[in-house]
Amino acid sequence: MTSLGRAQAWLIGALAWVSGAIVAITCLLVIVDVAAYAAGAGSIGWTADVAAYGLLYATMFAAPWLVREKGHVTLESFRRMLPPGPQRALEVLVCLLSLLACLALSWGGIALIVDSIDRGAIDFRVLAIPRWLLYLPLPVGFLLMAVEFGRVLAGRGSLYGGGSEGI
């Protein structure tokens, strides 16, 4: 494995842990919030904001790791009826389409972030949050996924054979 490959593996693994940490922190925050106002000590107020953003960050940060871990749901019944040659050909096609879509979405995401910073757009919830923070995890996740699909395309690893295989 090249050092660049190791860096990618480390990065997606670390982001997956960040994703887990976000779930744990959300949980803690909700408990503290509910306990605080049940005890008459007021309310944090912005818990729902953090929970909503947390959901998006946790999802996008877990997604590249799930590609590596073969953790995404895939239908394999049709694929498995084919001989190995066409199977590999289809896998290449799938990776290629996925790679293109991920790149397009990353591009859209980066354009969104740049545009939101330019406009100074704000996401008004209980907190007033700079809007680019809402969009930030999307290109991060999609770019890292693009790299993962690129890896499979280059013959390093496969999309299939994870927990979701079989007819």
Partner: peptide, 8 residues
């Protein structure tokens, strides 16, 4: 108003 906001 001294009200606690609940964002439900």
């Amino acid at each position: 108003l001294g009200v606690t906001l609940r964002d439900i």
